[in-house]
Amino acid sequence: MDLAKASKYLAASLLLFTLVGDTTEACKCASEHPQEAFCSYDVMLRVKFMESGRINNNFKIIKVYKGPEEAQDVHYVGTQTIPGLCEYHYQVDHTDEYIIAGELDGDTVWLSVCAFLKRWSWITPEQRRGFTSEYSKGCSCSIVWGHSEGSISSNECVWTYQRLPTNLRDFQYKHMVCLPQVEKGGMCTWKSLGTLEPGSFRKRRLTQ
């Protein structure tokens, strides 16, 4: 990892520790929309680990969704931890594939404490479409929590988790993308990945 990235990570970790104090609280991670993970990390890979247990370097890359050409040559997955603060060891199952996002440093992908690492079998068809083509179109937009609709800027989409009925709370996470709309002067709005119609909350599976 280069010095700039290392300094940024260390500063963020120390700030987190200073603000929270209790390391148990510090290790709690806020939910992250898949689009946020796609846009904020250097690489996003679909991999299959050959061994179960702690995350390890015995894996093969199935697909590169984001990253430079050299991402195909990644051989190592490292976890960024500070002794005594959030020393979490990711567990993997060799019977499933995983999608991971992290910072690229040579032939190593570094996973943060709150890394985006999900079983591929848990990823919805809509999210798979997002990783393949749609999330990259929304990286100029921001996804925000806890704002009223009237307080957001034109490049923000509100993640309305707490204001939705229980049966719809995961819908934006699993089925929607935040994209700029040309017809609205570039304003960012939610679109259903199943229908790609602005503001649609209809659940529709994609044709594979």
Rank of each mutant, 00 (worst) to 15 (best):
Q91R: 07
S52K: 04
P34E: 07
T79Q: 12
V113M: 10
V144T: 10
T79M: 09
H75W: 02
G138V: 05
Y135W: 13
V77D: 00
F116H: 12
I99F: 01
A71P: 05
N58F: 11
D73P: 00
P83K: 08
Q127M: 15
L111Q: 02
I82L: 10
A71S: 15
R119D: 05
T124C: 05
N56L: 09
D73H: 13
T79C: 11
C141A: 08
T18E: 11
R119C: 01
R54A: 14
W120K: 01
L14W: 11
V74D: 03
M50C: 03
L19I: 03
A37E: 05
A37R: 08
A26P: 04
A37K: 06
M50P: 00
E103W: 09
V43G: 09
M50D: 14
A12L: 11
V20S: 13
E70P: 00
P34F: 09
G102Q: 00
S31P: 02
G78A: 15
R46T: 00
W122A: 12
F38K: 09
E25K: 14
E97V: 01
R54G: 15
E25G: 00
C114V: 07
D105K: 08
R129N: 11
Y88E: 13
G146F: 09
A115G: 02
C141S: 08
S31G: 04
C86G: 03
R128E: 12
H94T: 06
S52C: 06
F131W: 10
H147T: 05
T18M: 09
T124R: 06
Y90H: 06
E70L: 08
F49Y: 12
R54H: 08
R129K: 14
S112H: 06
G21H: 07
G84T: 07
G21E: 06
T108D: 04
C114P: 07
G146Y: 11
W145H: 13
R128Y: 00
R119A: 03
S142Q: 13
D93K: 08
F49G: 04
R54Q: 10
G130K: 09
M50L: 15
L45S: 03
C139L: 09
V109G: 01
D73N: 15
S40V: 01
D73C: 05
S136N: 06
A26Y: 07
Y76C: 12
E126V: 04
P125L: 11
P34G: 10
L117R: 02
L45W: 05
V92C: 02
S52W: 06
A115K: 01
C39G: 06
L15A: 12
G130W: 11
V77N: 00
H94V: 01
T132D: 15
N56E: 10
W145I: 09
K118A: 04
Q72K: 15
A115P: 01
K137Q: 14
I100G: 01
E32R: 14
F49D: 03
L16V: 04
V64L: 09
T23N: 08
Y65K: 06
S40L: 05
C29F: 08
E51A: 12
S121F: 00
K48G: 13
K28W: 07
V77T: 11
A37L: 07
R129D: 07
K48M: 07
V47M: 10
T108E: 11
L104E: 03
F17Q: 12
W145T: 13
W110T: 08
Q72V: 10
T18F: 10
T108I: 15
E32L: 14
A115M: 02
A26V: 10
G138W: 05
I62M: 12
I82A: 01
V113I: 14
E25P: 00
H75N: 14
K66A: 09
S112M: 04
